[in-house]
């Protein structure tokens, strides 16, 4: 940015203090206000016509757990103890990634009218979708903790390691989401392609089966899948109270950073052409 533009916004913020501007320390406050408003709108929309509303965020993983456990817990009774907990951790993390990226994809196109008037960067809309997925995730975490308590899983200090895992996963999702949102503007068919990809990805994330059930070639692949890494680390710290191996952390960090940086680069490059297209 040149000196001139900076100066311009300074003058603007002097004359109108309620306007958003980067120079204004209030700018960040405004920024969060926008994300907060967009997020609460998404949440309200999601449950706009249902009676139970946000309770579904807690209930739906629970019901899914019951169904899947009913089918698979017998099948994997030898390799997995406390199957419902095992499944629920995987499901919760998978759902976070899936909704975050899937919803980010349409963030720009859905908000066409708002984008025309917005005075803040376009990626705010993607951030708000990620944030929405995160809030939903927090509700599911409640379910997860309740079930863990029911199965008398011992809670150790290692549970704190769950926080950086989620942070890395969000970073990863943000990168993917930024790229998808841009692609979706120019090539709407990506929606259907990504759906297929998600299915494959889900089956490669060992959500409801043990990794030992996979053939050798798949086992070597799965340990490079960031989603599986996040799930595996979370199971270690939550269910088994162990510290996960360092190489898992490193791989997850690298994946998250690559995705995040690529996402920003792609978004910056094509951002300018977005409005012409939608």
């Amino acid at each position: 940015m040149s000196k001139l533009s900076e100066h311009g916004s300074e003058v603007a913020s002097n004359s109108k203090d309620y306007f958003f501007s980067e120079q204004n320390p209030k700018g960040y406050k405004q920024y969060w206000f926008v994300i907060h408003e967009l997020t609460s709108r998404e949440l309200k929309r999601k449950y706009a016509r249902s009676y139970l509303g946000v309770v579904w965020s807690i209930l739906s993983p629970l019901l899914s757990m019951v169904v899947i456990s009913f089918i698979f817990s017998y099948m994997f009774r030898r390799s997995i103890e406390n199957f419902p907990v095992y499944y629920l951790i995987g499901l919760t993390i998978w759902t976070l990634f899936k909704t975050a990226t899937d919803h980010s994809m349409t963030a720009l196109v859905d908000n066409k009218q708002l984008l025309l008037r917005a005075k803040l960067p376009k990626y705010t809309f993607i951030l708000s979708r990620i944030n929405t997925a995160f809030v939903n995730f927090l509700y599911s975490v409640i379910t997860m903790l309740i079930i863990m308590f029911c199965f008398r899983i011992e809670i150790t200090w290692r549970i704190l390691l769950f926080i950086p895992v989620i942070f890395l996963l969000l970073l990863f999702s943000l990168g993917i989401g930024l790229i998808l949102s841009i692609i979706y503007v120019f090539f709407a068919d990506i929606k259907y392609l990504y759906e297929i990809l998600l299915t494959l990805w889900m089956y490669l994330s060992a959500i409801f089966y043990p990794t030992t059930a996979l053939p050798d070639y798949a086992q070597s692949v799965i340990y490079y899948n960031p989603i599986f890494l996040a799930i595996d680390i979370s199971r270690s710290v939550l269910q088994y109270g162990q510290i996960p191996p360092i190489y898992e952390w490193i791989r997850l960090i690298i994946c998250a950073l690559i995705s995040f940086i690529c996402g920003i680069l792609v978004f910056k490059k094509f951002e300018g052409n977005v409005m012409r297209k939608i």
Partner: peptide
């Protein structure tokens, strides 16, 4: 809700 959503986008503070 729309007043707050749209207002925030336009640049009004809370």
């Amino acid at each position: 809700e729309n007043v707050y959503l749209n207002g925030s986008i336009i640049g009004y503070s809370k």
